[in-house]
Amino acid sequence: MSIHEVHITIPHREAAHAIVQRTAHRFSGRYTVAVADEGDRSCVRFDGSVETPEQLEREFRALLLDDMLRARIETETASLRQLIVEAALRSALREPEAGA
């Protein structure tokens, strides 16, 4: 028997709301997903045919951990990535025939 509505609550102290949204979006091809910011926590609601809610929650939390790490890496490397792209574009304008 499948369940049609599953709720997962993530306190903000565990993961920022934006990161919970990012993870929830990954499930939006399989379920109708709604994410609400409820003060100190994010509430994710999945609508659809869910065979094992526990497995869904395990999968969600595993992907959430990855997305938290991705967010940290992005924060750490974003300025460097921007510098590299700017340098590449500058060099292309300076020497349009070189390096391409």
Binding site: I84, P96, G99
Partner: peptide
């Protein structure tokens, strides 16, 4: 220092089509 020019060349090489 991180060799920005080397990384920029790598990025530019992968995006070479952009400049054509």
């Amino acid at each position: 220092p991180i060799p920005l020019d080397r990384h920029a060349i790598a990025w530019r090489t992968r995006k070479a089509f952009l400049f054509d």
